[in-house]
Design a protein around this nucleic acid. Structure first.
Lengths: 329, 329
DNA sequence: CTGAAAGCGCTTACAG
DNA sequence: CTGAAAGCGCTTACAG
């Protein structure tokens, strides 16, 4: 079953059959209909290999990851790969942190030889900047979940600032006015953006930060400790915005140990929606959290990779709030 | 830069150049060396599209997933896709739970038209059996993280029985002799296998199950409740093997509330290594757990998909024990 | 062991 | 709008 068979049945030439099926405009509607009817009747499926060879389009997108094993990178990769599949694009994934790491230049050359139609560079967050590889390719390149060293590249990042704003707005809406903040390391860009978002929301509501920010290391253990520090400081607060869920879980622990009621005495919000990544755990949710929508990030970047109008610079996906008992008064 | 250029430089025909580079045995060593030297000097990369078209091998593996969003399916998918990349195979992923679900037959026909070199069917655990699609393809098909309806298919599954055995052996090694069991639903195959593994280990050690199994729903909330039931029952036990980490975390909560020391009074083990999936959380680990090594499962299945000798039937990956403070006496 | 030739099944200028 | 023809760059029987 080849295109020439379809052409014969439809009574047209091979060239005309090809154009009729590929949406060329320079073809009469009647001919197009006839060819399409013949193709449908014969159940014709074009040979993707021949089509690729003739057209120069591989139907394959390269994916370059650092540390694909990283928990946060994973949903981004899965989102991207699923979206590519929906567009009938295969994904050729090279990971620089894999068991047999290929030198970056090797990966690039392999991808070139494969004639990829586009490239996604997927990182593991805003902390590291990826060296731009765009100039090695004559096809679209997009940086996902990482910044590129070239500001003119197309990048997709989660909106950490908006995450901080969302979390804080939610606390304000539930009636909190004195909001403390426990977060990750001082040097973390994500932590800083989330803090900025918090300040945005406070300012918009005419509130002041209640207490100096308590920095940490994103761990539960440090979150618990930071909460003890907050309590010991004697500062007054009715809510804690935690920069991530693990710290928030630690804070929750400290509250339990100190007989502080959550959310009655202190409301707590985290970031990551860690519990939401678990199937069927809604029944045992502990935290209100902001979901960074990382799968959506990968999906969106993949969906826009081959679209004609691609705006350079940074693009952000919108986080969403997931309400749980830690703020549900 | 084409193969004909390499042939010209090496002073051989196009056909000979092709054979020399593709490891055909019917070629003299001298000629092979000359051609390879020429290829290296010219920095020749064969055009993958032309090669695919001529050879009929697409360099693409189909991946059929149900519910790729599922937390447990994700590492399997990532492991598979990374391994495929290491073998220079692209992955064309169709998810039946995606935003625009393709009918299974459509996906199959697309994959056929793409001339895939092999197919991975990835499920989300042992609970559901995937209908066998092997007969639609004349290339190797492997079922990963799911059973196939045809026992003669090649399947890769996590070894839940071994997981239960490992967890229990560890408890026995740390000196526990009266081991209770909290787990998921009675109907769950994974729960049943893990329980069997526990019984194996107890039997091998000459111990009896201390207490009737407490069934649940895998949630933290139900785990906490089950632990209260165990305590209220008056049964004597010095350890609890929990069928998953969430239930174990719930049990831990109940112990904290009841002032039961872990692991001094009661040791607790879970399954999933949930905390281990988080980067840099080792410092705040709470649980000893058995890691099902799901990424390795995907990786192994992908690595063996195109190997010549493929044994039909079920294959199991080996879980690993991760020791944490809940058993560390 | 080596080479001439056919062929993989489409797409795409180009001429009509 | 339609068709004849070239061509995409390899691989692979086949003949020598």
């Amino acid at each position: 079953m080849r295109l020439s068979d379809v052409a014969a049945v439809a009574g047209v030439s091979l060239a005309t059959a090809s154009k009729a099926l590929n949406g060329s405009t320079r073809i009469s509607q009647a001919t197009r209909d006839r060819v399409q009817a013949a193709a449908a009747r014969l159940d014709f499926r074009p040979d993707a290999l021949a089509r690729s060879f003739a057209s120069g389009r591989s139907g394959t997108i390269g994916v370059l990851t650092h540390q694909a094993k990283n928990t946060f990178a994973r949903p981004v990769i899965v989102g991207a790969v699923l979206q590519l599949g929906e567009q009938n694009q295969a994904a050729l994934v090279y990971d620089s942190g894999a068991s047999e790491p290929k030198a970056m230049t090797d990966s690039i050359r392999e991808l070139q030889a494969r004639r990829i139609d586009g490239l996604l560079v997927i990182g593991s967050g805003h902390e590291h900047v990826s060296p731009s590889v765009t100039h090695y390719f004559d096809v679209p390149v997009t940086y996902v979940f990482t910044a590129s060293s070239d500001p003119d590249d197309v990048m997709y990042l989660p909106d950490n600032r908006q995450a901080g704003r969302l979390a804080t707005q939610h606390l304000i809406e539930t009636g909190c006015t004195k909001i403390a903040h426990i977060t990750g390391p001082r040097a973390s860009i994500a932590a800083e953006r989330r803090r900025e978002g918090m300040v945005d929301a406070l300012t918009e509501a005419g509130l002041d930060p209640a207490v100096p920010v308590v920095y940490g290391d994103w761990t539960r253990r440090r979150g618990a400790e930071a909460m003890r520090e907050l309590l010991a400081s004697g500062a007054e607060f009715d809510a804690v915005f935690c920069g991530n869920d693990h710290a928030a879980l630690g804070a929750l622990e400290t509250c339990a140990a100190a007989s502080i009621r959550v959310p009655d005495d202190v409301a707590i919000v985290g970031v990551d929606n860690w519990e939401g990544t678990v199937v069927d755990q809604e029944g045992s949710r502990q935290l209100t959290s902001v979901d960074p929508e990382l799968m959506e990030l990968g999906r969106l970047a993949a969906a826009n990779l081959l679209t004609p109008e691609r705006a350079p610079g940074e693009h952000y996906t919108i986080p969403s709030l997931v309400v749980g008992p830690s703020t549900l008064r």
